[in-house]
Design a protein around this nucleic acid. Structure first.
Lengths: 193, 193
DNA sequence: ATATTAATAGCACGAACGTTCGATTTTGAC
DNA sequence: GTCAAAATCGAACGTTCGTGCTATTAATAT
């Protein structure tokens, strides 16, 4: 049987790690702090990963699974196309507004942190983000959008903007602004069908 | 007369500091590294600021001045209203695309780094960003937009998105997508006047 | 040219970082 | 219940971090 104790501890560690990283970043995520908050020894925690880089990558994967569970999975009931696309947009903005991660959108936080640092960590972040964008684009295409990639880009951008407004400017109204802007954009697309 | 040597050195330091911070963040900006690259002693450099926090704030102010010089000042020739607003959008996206800072938009980098960390550094970043948004909103209002704040939000968001796409996904086409999206949005606003 | 002030360097500090290693505890299989 | 394996710990390592001090060099005013 696969070892069970270790993987349970690993999960506990990585869940906290994702929370910390959403506010402090993946570099600000420190093994000492993580161990302290979990009342573990640094070395005991460290042994689960072997290096800080592995910890960072594992944290990204856990955050990706969380994003899937919070944003994508709940929307899979909607039929592909416009309904699914709208569902994604709603759950995307809800996920930010509900503060699934205490530091707001995990991806917004780590993307700008690592976007200029080549290496496996950056690659993992890119892959996670690409997956989400590809899914948005796919539904946009099925919905008959003229330029699905452009539509995905605009939806994503408005989400990013809402995240910054709400967190840095403490302007919660940005979420509704993003919702309205997306809705208007979808109507434009629809009108020209 | 105000001391001249010191302020010249200070300027040199802060210009490099802004470049580093745009890629490594304001925490990744390290006094040791800064001193090394400038072939100065840590303590000599440090004496200019008295604390790392002061260095960070001074760096933000220099970046703000740079943003003003690169984005706002060149557009002041345009008459206020739609022309000025369009000019801002162009110079805003150009500033990112030209890589005025080696790490892309300085503000995008530091905003998500500090948006959850209360303190004077965060305040300085917020103030810098607010100034830009207020200026966008002001021109949107003069241009007769129905909801100037919403328009400013959307323009800013598309800029943010383009920055992430270009840096993390190395997708340069995002700048043109942002340009097109902004233009379409401005036309919508115009049509309903 | 000299005296005064400002700018820089050198060195050291305590703390925190990621990481290693050997000892110790805990777990799971038989 | 025993024993091997896995998980955790404690202590230490070499670095780097920000930050003080004290001396020394460089710039400026007279």
């Amino acid at each position: 049987m696969a070892t069970t104790k270790a993987s349970a501890t690993r999960t506990t560690i990585l869940e906290l790690a994702a929370q910390i990283a959403s506010t402090e970043g993946l570099e600000g995520l420190t093994i000492g702090r993580l161990a302290g908050e979990l009342r573990m020894s640094k070395s005991g925690l460290f042994a689960h990963f072997g290096s800080k880089q592995e910890l960072q990558i594992a944290t990204i994967q856990v955050a990706a699974a969380r994003f899937y569970g919070e944003v994508i999975a709940p929307t899979l009931g909607e039929p592909e196309g416009p309904a699914r696309l709208r569902g994604y947009c709603e759950s995307y903005l809800d996920y930010m507004q509900r503060e699934v991660f205490t530091g707001g959108c995990f991806w917004a936080a780590v993307a700008s942190e690592f976007d200029d640092r080549p290496g496996p960590v950056r690659d993992a972040i890119r892959d996670g983000l690409s997956g989400w964008l590809a899914e948005l684009e796919r539904q946009a295409r099925i919905a008959g959008a003229h330029d699905p990639a452009a539509l995905a880009f605009e939806i994503y951008s408005l989400g990013l903007g809402a995240n910054t407004y709400s967190r840095l400017l403490t302007d919660e109204a940005a979420f509704d602004r993003a919702r309205k802007a997306i809705e208007r954009r979808l109507l434009v697309e629809q009108a020209s069908t």
